[in-house]
Simulated assay, not measured.
Amino acid sequence: MSSSDSRNQRQKDVEDAFRVQSTAGIYGAMRSTAVGVGLAIIAHHTWPAFRRQTLAFKGFLVSGFTCFGLVFGAETALLEHENQRRREENVIRRAARIDLARQGLIGTETEIARWKAERGQ
């Protein structure tokens, strides 16, 4: 595998991770915004002290829920994506080490990279 091929693969991985993170962040923000609006409506109708608060303060609380959902939704999805990629890479590396051992070679980083290049992985 040439330097340009590995660079292109890394770029593809980065773009894929960004796509996963941004999509999950949007959905997380939408869910938590709905929760924040729902709680604000409930609090407005049941709690007189909350009813006296300004609209700006209520909007601030809802935007806090939105930011929370955005950040934690995106982070959770990215961590899960990274774990999945790590598990996939470990399976490939394990197969490479076993195959190289059968050939009588030691599974060094160079040999594993060569093995992956031969199989197009």
Rank of each mutant, 00 (worst) to 15 (best):
A56E: 10
R52Q: 15
G120W: 05
S6Q: 13
L70F: 15
F65M: 11
V37K: 01
S2W: 08
I26E: 07
E15I: 02
L39R: 04
V62M: 04
R114P: 01
R10Y: 05
I112H: 06
Q84H: 08
L100N: 07
L61N: 03
H45T: 05
L39W: 01
L55A: 11
N90A: 10
V35R: 07
T110I: 11
E88D: 09
R114M: 07
F65Y: 14
T66S: 10
A49S: 14
R31C: 12
G36W: 04
T110R: 13
E75Q: 14
T76E: 03
F50H: 05
R97P: 00
F68R: 02
G36N: 03
A43D: 10
S63T: 14
I98P: 00
T23W: 12
L79P: 00
R85H: 05
A96L: 09
Q84A: 08
N90R: 14
W47Q: 09
T23M: 13
R94C: 02
I106Q: 13
Q121G: 00
A113D: 14
Q121Y: 12
A29Y: 03
E80F: 05
V91T: 13
P48C: 01
F57E: 01
T66G: 02
S63M: 11
R86D: 00
Y27W: 12
C67E: 01
K116I: 00
I106S: 11
E75Y: 08
I42L: 12
N90L: 11
A17T: 12
I41Y: 07
S4T: 13
R102Q: 09
N83E: 07
I41C: 08
W47E: 05
Q9R: 13
V35Q: 11
K116N: 11
A117Q: 07
G64E: 07
W115M: 02
E82T: 03
Q53T: 11
G120V: 03
Y27F: 14
G69V: 06
A24P: 03
R114I: 07
G59C: 09
F68G: 07
L39A: 07
V20K: 10
Q121C: 02
S32M: 15
W47K: 01
R85Q: 15
A95C: 07
G73M: 07
P48N: 06
R85P: 00
I42Y: 05
F65E: 05
R119L: 06
T66L: 13
V20Y: 04
L55E: 09
S32W: 09
G107P: 10
Q11Y: 03
E80R: 09
R86W: 00
R10D: 11
R85I: 04
Q21A: 13
H45L: 06
T23K: 15
N90Y: 05
A43V: 00
R31A: 13
R87E: 12
T54C: 01
G69D: 08
T46N: 12
